[in-house]
């Protein structure tokens, strides 16, 4: 549905996109993740025809975003960052305007608007001026205008930014429902959003794609973290025994309480399960294993590992 090849964009001397490539299949919900200024919005602006790329090519539904821009724009619903709307218009008038300009046939406009209003739960505010709406409602009006013409592709730039937790949940549910009928590309800062509603994640950093895959794929590529053990027993002996059992694995003491010590054993990438031998060691010495836990790498770990330090360097640039 979307093909992007070596896409580049320069703003003056700044290189916002350094030749990214990815593709999106029909029906996928893609989460675009990345720190601020990574190139998420730029990519979306090129896909929607708002900006022209400096190099490379991109196509949506088989149409080139530069040469066949109007065809591409007909097939896209777009929610730009910060949801710009004509504040002086009424919600229903605004949706009618979008339906008209998006080419919804005259006899289908009413039903198309009714569908968008229903999906976005806007029934109570259709007669109000956009100016009077809360941030949450404005966001939903923004989503309604993006879906009113039932586009095959939806591009949503930070659809939940600035919303309160309840509104975020609502918008997220809505996106999940939309994902059933549309191909969706959304960008976000919220990692939970990606975990909940996206079938695939693309992480961008400083104009490059640094990861592309399903959540589980990305997490499994991340080296396993460590093992946390809460043991009641003498600390020095425990440490020396651990050194014998697992040579080369750094051990740190995380916490000391009167009755137990929490150790973190950095088991490194791809190591065999060691929970059994560790438990046997503790039991053999007559100590008590109070807790044993494998640290699960989360998407957040993946994100941090791939993008850390970028802000510092951006600040220097």
């Amino acid at each position: 549905m979307i093909e992007v090849e070596r896409l580049e964009k320069n703003y003056g001397f700044a290189r916002a996109l350094k030749g990214i490539s990815f593709s999106v299949q029909k029906g996928e919900v893609i989460g675009f993740l990345g720190p601020n200024g990574a190139g998420k919005s730029t990519t979306m602006k090129i896909l929607t025809g708002y900006l022209l790329p400096s190099g490379g090519r991109a196509s949506v539904a088989g149409f080139d975003v530069v040469a066949q821009s109007l065809e591409v724009r007909r097939r896209i619903g777009y929610l730009p960052e910060s949801t710009p709307l004509y504040a002086e218009m009424r919600v229903d008038d605004y949706l009618m305007f979008v339906a008209e300009i998006r080419g919804v046939p005259r006899d289908k406009r009413r039903s198309a608007i009714a569908r968008a209003v229903e999906l976005c739960a806007l029934e109570r505010v259709t007669g109000k001026n956009i100016l009077e709406l809360s941030k949450g409602y404005r966001q939903r009006v923004g989503l309604a205008q993006a879906i009113v013409h039932e586009p095959p592709v939806l591009i949503l730039d930070e659809p939940t930014s600035g919303l309160d937790p309840n509104q975020i949940v609502e918008v997220r549910k809505l996106i999940e429902r939309l994902g059933a009928e549309h191909t969706v590309v959304l960008s976000t800062h919220y990692l939970q959003e990606v975990e909940k509603s996206c079938s695939r994640v693309i992480i961008v950093n400083r104009g490059d794609i640094v990861a592309d895959g399903t959540r589980d794929e990305l997490v499994s590529r991340q080296p396993l973290g460590g093992l946390r053990a809460r043991v009641r027993g003498p600390e020095t002996q425990m440490l020396s025994q651990l050194g014998e059992l697992l040579p080369g694995c750094p051990v740190t003491v995380l916490e000391r309480s009167p009755d137990a010590v929490v150790y973190r054993i950095d088991v490194g990438a791809g190591s065999a399960p060691i929970e059994e031998s560790l438990t046997r060691l503790v039991v053999k010495n007559g100590w008590d294993m109070l807790e044993l836990q494998r640290e699960r790498p989360s998407l957040e770990d993946v994100f941090r590992a791939l993008t850390i330090g970028s802000e510092k360097e951006v600040a220097h640039a």
Binding site: K45, T48, G49, Y50, L70, E71, R73, R74, I76, Y78, P80, S82, P84, L85, Y86, A87, V98, I101, R102, G103, Q145
Partner: peptide, 14 residues
Amino acid sequence: KQGTIELLMTFPVT
């Protein structure tokens, strides 16, 4: 200023 130009310019309009 309002950013509405971004929607305007992404409508299928020349």
